[in-house]
């Protein structure tokens, strides 16, 4: 049975090259080259594996990014996704989590009938961790979070949902929105052929209006969250260095006991 999966991917400034915060908008500067959020590469990989296992269907990417940025999308297309919907619009600057979810939900609908929507649990630059659930709510679909594995059985999906103690077995009817925990699969490297093929894969570039959304509902205008203040994180205090003169172990034990961890 063919399986069509939409994966939400975020394109972010390269974390290896730390970005700057804009003191005026209090948000991250995004006018640099953007790459695929590593957190999303797990979802892409899982989707590709599920489509493989189903023996048919395709993976469609959905992304929202400034300046028609496709760098990160191309990476995911090179991994094997078939096509993408990219929402890029000046009106989206300043969108909060809910605004983003509204856009993604519309873009997912535009991408076509999906059996499954996969997301990361949170982005590596924003960390709100709320978008997947908001998208599910807006689409009226079941939401399962923190999946460490996904299995499809007819019209049922079975998820092992990571918890602090172990995992829960969760089932839902398709379609559903599932957020995938980072590190649970090994994302494939784009192959040479994949990179070349990605150049000609379709990217449907749309605006807020194309999605039938009101510009006032998104961006700064629609944001109901406000960043009140940004401040530099305090540098950590230097640790204590203890010269071991044969009693070092005892001092470590005392230290841990003071912290009440032993």
């Amino acid at each position: 049975m063919a399986m069509n999966i939409v994966v939400c991917v975020k394109q972010i400034p390269d974390p290896a090259d730390p970005g700057e915060l804009d003191p005026n908008t209090k948000t991250l500067k995004r006018d640099v080259k953007l790459i695929l959020d590593e957190a999303d590469s797990y979802g892409v990989e899982m989707a590709l594996q599920l489509v493989d296992a189903a023996g048919g269907g395709e993976v469609t990417l959905v992304s929202m990014a400034p300046d028609d940025e496709v760098g990160g999308i191309r990476t995911a297309l090179a991994m094997g996704a078939a096509k993408a919907v990219l929402v890029s619009d000046e009106a989206l600057v300043g969108s909060d989590a809910l605004g983003t979810a509204k856009v993604l939900a519309k873009a997912i609908e535009r991408a076509g009938d999906a059996d499954l929507v996969i997301t990361a649990t949170e982005s590596s630059d924003g960390y709100t961790g709320t978008v997947p659930e908001q998208v599910a709510e807006l689409l009226g679909l079941p939401s399962i979070t923190f999946a460490k594995s996904i299995e499809v059985d007819g019209n049922t999906i079975k998820v092992k949902r990571q918890t602090e103690a172990g995992y829960d077995d969760v089932e839902a009817p398709t379609p559903a929105v599932i957020s995938v925990t980072a590190g649970v699969v090994e994302p494939r490297y784009p192959s040479f052929k994949g990179i070349m093929a990605a150049k000609s894969k379709p990217v449907d570039e749309v605006t807020v209006a194309d999605l039938g959304l009101d510009a006032d509902a998104v961006g700064w205008a629609g944001a109901r969250q406000e960043i009140v203040e940004i401040a530099t994180a305090e540098t950590r205090e230097a640790g204590t260095i203890i010269e071991d003169e044969g009693e070092g172990y005892a001092q470590i034990v005392d230290f841990l006991a003071d912290l009440k961890v032993i």
């Binding site: 494939r188 490297y189 784009p190 192959s191 040479f192 052929k193 994949g194 070349m196």
Partner: peptide
Amino acid sequence: EKYVEAGWQGFGADTAYGGA
């Protein structure tokens, strides 16, 4: 094995035999 999967060996090789 990952190197083979990624297909890098064909970088400069003749397209008639599967190269890029």
